[in-house]
């Protein structure tokens, strides 16, 4: 059984959210529509819904992250859940406790949801296979494999600006090879029927047979950015340079960095996205990142509503008896 299967119950409902791969358009639009209903909560006097009152959500982060953990935490709190943040990298892992032992211990604290980030691909799926049946597991990023909630907040942001998916051209620029964001994004765009997905990167930062994912490959942003509606810049991780996959940051910026001149090749109303945190002057110029077409901060805001949607859908499906009406 793959991650795709383990995250669904026998009626095809989402029990965990591990990957967008293998999900249907209906799964994704349900998440997006639910998130749309949750977006307004942030603008009210009381930024809280009683939906997950009495539930306990554990942020299980084996890899450092500020933004993702914070937005998951806020999402859970806005649904009235209690939240426990465990930074395993700095606690039991160094004492030699195994992943399963850690899991059993936290389970013993009567939790309802694990939000997992781990440097190893497949970690969230492993946990989903071993937790008690009432617990929902959300993947907050596993190795190079997937970052499905990021992909969904990107879909949500794109849909709010450009709802006509079949006619969209989307360019993803940068380190595709090491990016779980890019992989999840490409899957989600394909499921939602996006017109054309382009990846723009140097050969050393492209996975083998990237075309099989359903993306058109460009090595030159001068061609790849032409007439696109959406530009997604990826974070360039500095450790890649140390492994000689890349020349210097300056050279990368020269060849691939998103400047106002390059952005001018895209459609006049194109939007610029980035999963954050941004490297100014490496993959993106400050004038673009802070410019009128950037929706980078909006992505952060949308991430809360989208995560609220995924949390309430998965926990809601755990609650409903199998065979109940959908």
């Amino acid at each position: 059984m793959s991650a795709t299967h383990i995250q669904l119950d026998s009626h095809g409902r989402l029990l965990h959210f591990l990957t967008v791969e293998g999900l249907t358009r209906r799964h994704l639009t349900d998440i997006l529509d639910t998130a749309e209903s949750l977006r307004g909560v942030a603008e009210r006097r009381v930024k809280k819904l009683p939906t997950l009152h009495g539930k306990t959500v554990v942020n299980l982060f084996f890899e450092a992250s500020t933004r993702t953990r914070t937005t998951f935490e806020l999402a859970a709190k806005r649904l009235s859940a209690d939240v426990l943040n465990l930074n395993i990298a700095t606690s039991s892992a160094v004492k030699g406790e195994s992943l399963l032992d850690t899991l059993r211990n936290i389970e013993a604290m009567q939790c309802d949801m694990f939000v997992v980030r781990h440097e190893q691909s497949g970690a969230a799926e492993f946990i989903a296979r071993h937790v008690k049946p009432h617990i929902a597991v959300l993947n907050a990023g596993d190795g190079r494999h997937a970052h499905p909630t990021q992909a969904m907040l990107d879909m949500f942001t794109i849909r709010r600006h450009k709802p006509d998916f079949p006619h969209l051209q989307i360019a993803i620029v940068g380190d595709i090879l090491h990016s779980r964001v890019a992989r999840s994004l490409i899957h989600a765009l394909n499921i939602l029927g996006a017109g054309e997905i382009r990846v723009i990167a140097p050969r050393t930062l492209l996975p083998a047979q990237v075309e099989t994912l359903g993306a058109r490959v460009f090595y030159d942003p001068g061609q790849g950015l032409r007439d696109v509606d959406v530009v997604v810049m990826l974070r360039l991780q500095k450790e890649r340079m140390e492994r000689a996959l890349l020349p210097t940051e300056q050279e990368f910026f020269q060849r691939y960095g998103l400047t106002e001149d390059r952005l001018a090749l895209a459609k006049p109303d194109a939007i610029v996205m980035h999963p954050g945190p941004i490297n100014r002057g490496v993959e993106i110029d400050s004038r673009v990142a802070d410019g009128p077409r950037s929706v980078i901060l909006e992505q952060v805001t949308n991430g809360i509503a989208v995560r609220m949607a995924i949390m309430s859908i998965t926990l809601g499906n755990h609650a409903r008896p199998a065979g109940g009406t959908v």
Partner: peptide, 18 residues
């Protein structure tokens, strides 16, 4: 999102923004 039977019926698919 305010129903008292969320733990029995889960998220209503037809939910709209208030």
């Amino acid at each position: 999102f305010y129903r008292d039977d969320f733990s029995r019926i889960g998220v209503n698919r037809q939910v709209r923004p208030s």
